[in-house]
Design a protein around this nucleic acid. Structure first.
Length: 927
RNA sequence: GCUCGAUUAGCUCAAAGGUAGAGCAUUCGGUUGAUAACCGAAAGACAGAGGAUCGUUACCUCUAUCGAGUACCA
């Protein structure tokens, strides 16, 4: 009995069922590296149209987390799909190397008080180590790129080009030095850019403070009162008592109505709209004495509550009725609004707070005290002076340093800014707005987000008071502070030096070297650049300098946080140097959260490390998860989700294995023309072509999770549940060289070649593994190939017919299941099918004759023109009856046939098997 | 605070103004010639309330939950 199994053409392949990815992927990577797969693709695409996805540099600190993995995998999927599409899509990864976080790490490791030069050397060393670690993990993900030649923002040439680009920004009139309040971190001891600020809830002391009116007469006039009042106080409300020492004015809104209200605490000046609320807060009764418009109060004078200073009322639109008293304490050194309104009135911008957040020693009352400590000191003083009307706790969101997580302050210092409202090419804001309009966004809401940010953002403070950064390499006049007249030449001189020796060249430079006799009148700027400037000019330092790349890039792709970060810094520097954005499209992805949608955090214990996924399940599983998740929103990951991904992977892998195993003996050199294929083969190819069409469209739209769905459905429904299921009989039982079998193999060959390409950008390891099987060697990467070209589609009527056949198959399967439940049959081959065909809808069924049984996977399927009442099928006029077979089972093909036993020399076989074994072999047309 | 967005089976995702689909997971069954595989079947969902509509999960409003963005929050 069992010997007939040996006469079958059973599948055979070295392609293992289980991927064993975690163990084998690293070996494959090593092989790819040796064979220079990246270089192969470059050579294969030489001269093709370019698609440049420009890599945003991750910060060179810490091991990569799942967010990095998502980012790099998405980039890799795009680069690879573009490559298969025929583009030359080089991928040059990069790293962001300067900046405070690395300084902090080095300080932690080596202590403070290291000489600057040595300190910078240590920073460079540290960054190098971090890059090596991160690179290893990125490579492990299967990301194809020029990992041997990444760009580093600390490369000497890069540093030099940063300085040159800064020069271009200056040249175009977008750079200025100014004394104005900026976000200041007292832990960093440095100014911060918008991108380095994050808002967190904080409880601050909120106080209502009295400012005594100085000139009762003027006040009376303003309020149109006959008699001057005594004991009048303007009431301001603030949540930052420590800014009171720098108070220079009280702002009111010119349009609001202000009340004078008699209370037991004297006469209070409050905005009418807020007065009731305020009195309630103070627990006071009052009656209205007079009213005036804000604009009538301008220049009225009041006493500072504890300093020896008289301050005016000024008008400002920033005064609102949302909170407080409608009178706003104004300290130009500690708030941007205050600064703006203050400069209109030429108020001084005296900042009494030092870099470390302590008041200057000579400041009365709070000299040497930390600002947040000073709150209490000031409140006590106000109390003793009777100027504190009310004190509460106020919970609000407050800016914090994104590195230190500590509250930051506004502090006026001399800094360098990129101005939004100036410039030789037009205002930067306008140019940037136009650039955003010209950019494509995936998903589309990115546009509104970036637009909004550009419309509202303040000037960009690009100077930092740090060591590990690219210098703002300017010479300023000692007395006037004006830039050296030959600045643009000098910048080039400096850049040349930096190109040779790195940024140290500037810090160690003796001005005489470049300025000669001028040197005694000029000094070097020692501020460094915001690291966001570094990464923001990669378009100038990378895209424009590497011959294989191009400018502008086709795409920048980063997490959605980079609207505020890299997308914006690149946009602004691009606009300030070239007048347009360095990218044509932006793609953003969301953050990774756990199964419940919670943020990942060590304290919650829900962190999933990419390294762990790769070590346990393999990079292809991680890649498949990335691809199958909609990146537009948050991306959920958990062990359960990964388990499902593994299942999905198995399905795809096994399908590939089955395809490979059945074409093991197929000679592909002479392609069989479509006409020699059977009908079902052509239908299967049509399904494959449809799949390819849809998948390519999805790649084109960057809609990857759809692709995974499509591939999975194809493997399960079209192949596993239909075509392959039916095909087994033909592949196994035909003569090994039968035309019908070769037709099947030719079809499988087409399918596997299509499929392996379609999934290669996602399941790169698996695809290369399949590719090596197909090619017989692993010397060439699949990514040097193009999408597979399939034979032309059959006509629509043909397709319709086969769709109906599939429905019929489903209907019959339901009926089979009924017999099975009644224990009348086991396998479907234990059943016979009778079809009753009325009308013409089912004519084609008659034509198929005996081959119908192969489609239905039953031992026989016969058409009759009329017969007993039977179950309707979804084909008009076609009914079906399924019954158990009465015949013996052929031991070879398992069909139950009347012919089994007729040939006495082979009593266990049917006629079909006999001819397939010893005769001409059967002929098939349909299935 | 303000502005957006989301909410479809256990999970990941679809679709459509008129019987809501798929894959995986689950249960049951078949098969033992893809076998740590394969095939079939079953069961399973429109967050809640109100409204417009002949009718909707789909449009509108509100509520809930989640998320994101943003702020000159004095």
């Amino acid at each position: 009995m069992a010997e007939y199994k040996k006469t079958l053409n059973l599948p055979d392949t070295a392609f293992p069922m289980r991927g064993d990815l975690a163990r084998r992927e690293p070996m494959m990577l090593e092989d790819w590296r040796k064979k220079d797969f990246y270089g192969q693709v470059r050579r294969a695409r030489l001269g093709r149209p370019k698609f440049i996805l420009h890599d945003g540099p991750p910060y060179a600190n810490g091991d990569i987390h799942i967010g990095h993995a998502v980012n790099k995998v998405l980039k890799d999927i795009i680069v690879k799909s573009k490559s298969l599409e025929g583009f030359d899509a080089p991928y040059v990864p990069g790293w962001d190397c300067h900046g405070l976080p690395i300084e902090l790490m080095v300080e932690k490791k080596h202590g403070k008080n290291i000489p600057p030069r040595q300190f910078r050397a240590l920073c460079r060393e540290f960054a190098k180590e971090q890059i090596a670690r991160q690179r290893k993990d990125f490579v492990r993900l299967g990301v194809l790129g020029d990992w041997e030649h990444p760009y580093l923002t600390m490369d000497f040439s890069f540093e030099a080009n940063i300085i040159r680009t800064l020069g271009a920004v200056l040249q175009n009139g977008y750079l200025y030095q100014g004394q104005k309040p900026v976000h200041w971190c007292i832990s960093c001891l440095s100014a911060l850019a918008e991108a380095e600020v994050e808002y967190e809830e904080r409880v601050s002391p909120a106080i209502d403070v009295l400012f005594h009116a100085v000139d009762a007469k003027a006040l009376a006039t303003a309020f149109n009162l006959q008699l001057p009042l005594s004991d009048v106080h303007a009431v301001i409300w603030t949540t930052t008592p420590w800014t009171l020492p720098a108070n220079e004015a009280i702002s009111v809104n010119s349009e609001f109505v202000y009340d004078l209200i008699q209370t037991s605490h004297g006469v209070l000046l409050l905005a009418h709209e807020l007065s009731g609320e305020c009195l309630a807060r103070y627990g006071l009764e009052g009656h209205l004495l007079a009213q005036a418009r804000g604009k009538d109060l301008e220049f009225l004078l009041f006493e500072h509550p504890f300093s020896d200073r008289i301050v005016p009322i000024i008008l400002g639109d920033h005064v609102t009725l949302e909170a407080g008293t409608g009178l706003v304490h104004t300290a130009p050194a500690h708030g941007l609004d205050d600064y703006v309104v203050g400069s209109r009135y030429h108020l001084p911008v005296d900042n009494p707070v030092e870099a470390d957040g302590h008041f200057r020693q000579d400041e009365p009352l709070v000299g040497g005290v930390d600002v947040f400590e000073a709150n209490n000191v000031i409140i006590e003083r106000l109390k003793t002076m009777g100027r504190l009307l009310c004190q509460t706790q106020y919970k609000h969101s407050y800016p914090h340093c994104w590195r230190h997580k500590t509250p930051i302050i506004f502090r006026a210092t001399s800094q360098w800014f990129i101005g939004m409202e100036s410039g030789n090419l037009g205002t930067l804001r306008d140019i940037a707005r136009k650039a955003v309009k010209a950019t494509a966004f995936y998903p589309s809401w990115g546009r509104a987000r970036l637009e909004g940010m550009i419309a509202n953002r303040p000037d960009w403070c690009i100077s930092r008071q740090r060591n590990w950064g690219v210098p703002i390499a300017f010479f300023l006049h000692n007395e006037t502070g004006v830039l050296h007249p030959r600045t643009s030449e000098l910048i080039e001189d400096v850049a040349k030096l930096v190109e040779k020796e790195g940024i140290d060249a500037w810090f160690e430079l003796d001005p005489v070297e470049l300025l000669k006799n001028d040197a005694e009148h000029y000094h070097k700027v020692v501020d460094t650049l915001d690291v966001w400037f570094d990464s923001g000019v990669t378009h100038a330092c990378v895209l424009k300098t590497r011959p294989e790349l191009a400018h502008p890039a086709n795409m920048y792709l980063e997490g959605s946080d980079q609207h505020r970060g890299w997308f914006q810094s690149s946009l602004l520097t691009g606009c300030a140097t070239d007048g347009y954005a360095p990218y044509q499209s932006l793609l953003t992805h969301g953050f990774v959260v756990d199964g419940q949608g919670h943020k990942m955090s060590k304290s919650r214990g829900n962190v999933i490390a990419p390294q762990k996924i790769m070590d346990n399940l393999g990079a292809d599983i991680l890649r498949l998860w990335v691809a199958s998740t909609d990146y537009a929103g948050e991306m959920n990951i958990s062990d359960e989700i990964l388990k499902h991904v593994v299942e999905a992977y198995r399905r795809i892998r096994n399908t590939l294995r089955f395809l490979l195993a059945n074409i093991a003996d197929f000679d592909a050199t002479a392609e069989l023309p479509v006409e020699e294929l059977l009908e079902i083969d052509r239908y299967a190819l049509w399904l494959t072509a449809e799949l390819q069409k849809e998948v390519r469209q999805c790649y084109d739209r960057y809609d990857f999770h759809q692709i995974v769905q499509l591939l999975q459905a194809f493997c399960s429904e079209d192949l596993g549940g239909f075509y392959l299921d039916i095909l087994k009989d033909r592949l196994y039982t035909s003569r090994i060289d039968a035309p019908a079998r070769r037709a099947a193999q030719q079809t499988l060959f087409h399918i596997v070649h299509t499929l392996v390409r379609l999934l290669a950008p996602i399941l790169s390891f698996t695809a290369e593994e399949v590719w090596a099987q197909l090619e017989g060697s692993a010397d060439e990467t699949i990514f040097s190939k193009y999408w597979y070209v399939l034979p032309p589609d059959p006509d629509p009527a043909f397709i319709t017919r086969w769709k109906k056949l599939r429905q019929l198959r489903e209907d019959v399967q339901k009926e089979l299941e009924r017999l099975r439940a009644a224990a009348l049959i086991g396998s479907s081959l234990g059943a016979e099918v009778e079809l009753y065909v009325n009308g013409h809808e089912g004519d084609f069924l008659r034509d198929m004759g005996d081959e119908l049984r192969f489609i239905l996977l039953t031992s026989s399927a016969v058409c009759f023109s009329s017969g007993p009442a039977a179950l309707k099928t979804r084909i008009e006029g076609v009914c079906v009856v399924v019954k158990p077979t009465l015949y013996r089972k052929c031991e070879r093909c398992w069909h139950h046939r009347a012919t089994v036993g007729r040939d006495l020399s082979c009593p266990e076989l049917c006629d079909r098997c006999i001819t397939n074994l010893f005769g001409e072999g059967e002929i098939r047309r349909y299935a």
